[in-house]
Design a protein around this nucleic acid. Structure first.
Length: 576
RNA sequence: UGGGGUGUAGCCAAGCGGUAAGGCACCGGGUUUUGGUCCCGGCAUGCGGAGGUUCGAAUCCUCCCACCCCAGCCA
């Protein structure tokens, strides 16, 4: 073995160094920065604006930022980018913190707010004014827009651009003092009105807003713009790598300009492509519209791609984190197929969720040769993937419910569940054979008569006789009634926001929620608690909704099991 | 008709001059007391297009095309 080792090609990363290959372009940049000495540590930040709830797109950013810090032995801050008091609220701050924590990340005591830096930002603005790099402009918003020029034509300079330093200093001080009404003046950086990059055409640094801020109250009536606040906040916190989404690429020259003018610690901004998911929308504006318009029941509606919605839907933090690592990080705009997310949650829950039996659309079955008042406790495995999860007892008796879908009076080809004269296995119980089909006056099947084979207790037969199907069931007199909410994709279209002339709401899936007010579950489920997840055998993964009460359990379907039969059936229908 | 980006399979995504990883989806087959899981196999003579450099190009050069972002006192 040792000589074989000697003959193998040399590993670059042997020794005590962690053998971590960069797994995306950001890690490559970071490793190069570490190697070159540009930075001697890694410090990132997740900087949400508290104006909405976090969604799975944010999860990508959270996993990236906290993940990078962890991988390189650094730190990641949580920083609220709260520079716009008219849009931001404490409610969002609380929700965001809860979601980040739930996802599994810890910012320690590094909970920061851009608003903590307002005083420092003000002083730096004064410094820029003194250097002749910023000025107070009296132009109206409309005029500023006109003076800015267009994509193809340069802008022109404001008539107020060349005020003296003294005048600018005085005016800016009076802006802060509240002497001017909203919109009457702004502080602008003096850069280049002819720059092909519009962000450099004298960007606004401060606007006057006589609004109460959720944290600073009435202290300020001038508020910094994103560009002026963000980089400087990064610098104050000693952020080395400031990771943001693609649309800020054009802002990077401005990010760098401010830092260079001030001569302060200079973090590096790196941009990556935000996450898009098929069959949903990811913009805060649209999500907010769904909530406000009552198209869903709040930010945590289980159909929402918000973290609170996914949580209520039954998604685990582990599955979401797994998803975030599987999608990768790159700069190409993309729409990830939602089936990957579904795969991640199934993969996680398959290993962890205890199995139970529940019948959603009951069909009554009477075992005609089973003793009238007899009850047997059948032993059932809690999770075939994990023996340590043990077994439980499930009561069996003469009258049962099975799934209506599991019986066909006239079975199509490849349907090998129950049918007249056919024998199937009831999971963990007995083989039963259908001997009679009872219908009502409308011809609707209301009940099945079956016989059972006492020699097949537990679901085995001594003679080695095979049955092709195994059905789940509950004992009618023992089952507990439950409400079940079946969730499906919120939209019918893979890219609802991608249609130029159509509103995304036109693509809402009218069947995204189907409520089954009365389904039946095996009795062991009776004391399930909100948040507990189960696999209902052969159906899918379900979680107990917080709407549950003492006498009414409510289950949300997280995701159905893969369903090969449904696929076959669909194909056969399509063929005929 | 300015500037900044991006194009590798149906969807993501590796690749960094030596002959196209991986995952999801999909299609076969095996195991199975969940038509689940698991296992095995298939799935780009091809990397937006056209030229060029090279013994050799997804990787380098040139031109072209497509798509995304930017004209908030939003972030």
């Amino acid at each position: 073995m040792t000589d074989r080792k000697a003959s193998e090609p040399k590993e670059e990363n042997n020794g005590n160094e962690k053998s971590t290959r960069p797994s995306n372009f950001i890690e490559e940049i970071i490793e190069e920065d570490l190697r070159s000495g540009r930075y001697d540590r890694v410090h990132t930040r997740f900087p949400p604006e508290p104006n909405g709830y976090l969604h799975i797109g944010h999860a990508k950013s959270i996993c990236l930022n906290f993940g990078l810090a962890e991988k390189y032995g650094g730190l990641c801050n949580l920083r609220f980018d709260d520079t716009n008091p008219v849009k931001e609220e404490q409610e969002y701050i609380d929700a965001i913190k809860e979601d980040v924590r739930w996802l599994g990340f810890d910012w320690g005591d590094r909970e920061y707010y851009a608003s903590d830096y307002f005083e420092q930002l003000y002083e730096w603005a004064v410094e820029l004014i003194k250097k002749g790099k910023a000025y107070v402009d009296d132009l109206s918003a409309e005029e500023i827009r006109q003076y800015r020029g267009t994509l193809t034509e340069p802008g022109k300079e404001s008539p107020y651009r060349n005020r003296s330093v003294e005048e600018n200093l005085e005016l800016f001080q009076r802006m802060r003092a509240g002497e001017f009404p909203d919109g009457s003046k702004v502080l602008r950086a003096k850069i280049d009105m002819a720059s092909p990059n519009l962000n450099l055409r004298d960007p606004v640094m401060y606007r006057i807003l006589h609004a109460r801020h959720h944290r600073t109250g009435e202290k300020w009536c001038i508020y910094p713009m994103y560009d002026w606040a963000h980089g400087q906040s990064d610098s104050i916190e000693g952020i080395t790598h400031s990771i943001c989404t693609l649309e800020f690429e054009d802002h990077r020259p401005l990010y760098d300009w401010f830092l260079d003018q001030l001569g302060i610690f200079h973090p590096r901004q790196i941009e990556f492509a935000r996450l898009n998911l098929s069959y949903t929308v990811m913009s805060k504006r649209m999500l907010n519209e769904l909530v406000q318009g009552g198209y869903v029941n709040g930010w945590d509606d289980p159909r929402m791609p918000t973290l609170s919605g996914l949580r209520r839907r039954g998604y685990t933090p582990e599955a979401i984190r797994d998803f975030c690592t599987r999608i990768g990080v790159a700069k190409a705009d993309s729409i990830v197929d939602i089936s990957l997310l579904e795969h991640c949650i199934r993969d996680d829950l398959n290993k962890r969720a205890p199995r139970r039996m529940a019948v959603l659309r009951p069909l009554k079955v009477v075992i005609v040769n089973y003793p009238e008042n007899q009850v047997e406790e059948m032993e059932a495995v809690n999770n075939p993937e994990d023996e340590s999860m043990g077994t439980r007892k499930v009561p069996f008796s003469r009258v049962l419910y099975i799934e209506r879908d599991d019986f066909r009076e006239d079975p199509p080809k490849k349907f090998f569940r129950l049918a007249p004269g056919r024998e199937v296995r009831l999971r963990y119980a007995y083989y039963i054979k259908c001997v009679d089909v009872i219908k009502d006056e409308n011809g609707e099947i209301v009940e099945l008569h079956c016989t059972y084979d006492p020699e097949t207790r537990g679901g085995w037969s001594k003679d080695g006789r095979k049955v092709k199907a195994t059905l789940h069931w509950v004992s009618a007199s023992h089952a507990v009634p439950i409400e079940v909410r079946l969730y499906d994709r919120l939209f019918n279209d893979p890219n609802p926001a991608g249609h130029k002339d159509r509103d995304f709401k036109e693509f809402l899936n009218p069947e995204s929620l189907e409520t089954i007010p009365r389904a039946w579950a095996e009795p062991s489920l009776a004391n399930a608690r909100a948040g507990e997840r189960f696999q209902f055998e052969r159906l899918g993964y379900f979680v107990v909704d917080p709407d549950s009460t003492e006498n009414q359990l409510v289950f949300n379907r997280t995701v159905p099991l893969r369903d090969t039969w449904a696929k076959i059936e669909k194909k056969m229908k399509g063929a005929s």
